[in-house]
């Protein structure tokens, strides 16, 4: 499910055709329409606005290059999001290199977290604009990517492991860590109440 911008219905075949013919005005229109989808993804996967814009522009370039392959206009939002996620992961891969020591530490810690769950009491209030992105950006790099891919974008641990070149156990460990850290941050900012952790064996 892709959250569509309010102006999405204004996207027409004419704009798409203009983009295919390198018409700058059409490209600008498409950019503005795709901006909310792309920016929300990129802000989650990067650590600051500069990186987010860089990843977003790289994504839009890919979109323009592959626009000729688009058959149905209805699939455009989902496709835009997919391309942006993939580009953001590529962006992450180019920056981050894993070492075996880090992986070993994760694997040994995994056994302690696999049956751990959190209990939350949510406060029904909307966060300030951009606040959620700030909290996500503060997470450690791989942990942030796993949280985004699994919890928000709906990928399985197997897919996450393949995308980030880590083991499935490591993916679960990072997800647990991400939830824990996010819960702490949300509690500190009064977005959730009574965060409690209990383990089942």
């Amino acid at each position: 499910m892709v959250f569509l911008p309010k102006t999405w219905h204004l996207i027409s075949e004419q704009i798409i055709e203009g983009c295919k013919q390198n018409d700058r005005k059409s490209q600008r229109l498409l950019y503005e329409f795709c901006f909310p989808i792309m920016m929300k993804v990129c802000k989650r996967y990067t650590i600051n606005e500069d990186e987010a814009v860089e990843a977003m522009n790289a994504s839009f370039l890919k979109i323009l290059k592959n626009l000729s392959g688009l058959r149905d206009l209805q699939t455009l939002p989902a496709w835009v999001k997919q391309v942006t996620v993939n580009t953001s992961i590529d962006f992450y891969r180019s920056k981050k290199k894993y070492n075996e020591r880090n992986r070993f530490t994760i694997d040994t810690e995994y056994s302690n977290v696999q049956n751990t769950h959190f209990n939350f009491d949510f406060v029904e209030s909307k966060m300030d604009s951009g606040q959620i992105f700030k909290l996500i950006q503060e997470l450690p790099e791989t942990t942030r990517e796993v949280l985004n891919l699994f919890a928000i974008d709906g990928y399985s641990h197997k897919e996450v492991a393949e995308m980030l070149d880590i083991s499935e156990e490591a993916s679960r460990w990072h997800l647990h860590k991400a939830r824990k850290l996010m819960a702490q941050k949300l509690e500190e900012n009064h977005y959730v109440l009574n965060t409690s952790r209990y383990e089942t064996k």
Partner: peptide, 15 residues
């Protein structure tokens, strides 16, 4: 529930 909460917050956030 926690994941859905995060997802909802992200989708509703404005850029």
């Amino acid at each position: 529930l926690f994941d859905d909460f995060l997802k909802g917050q992200v989708e509703e956030a404005e850029v």
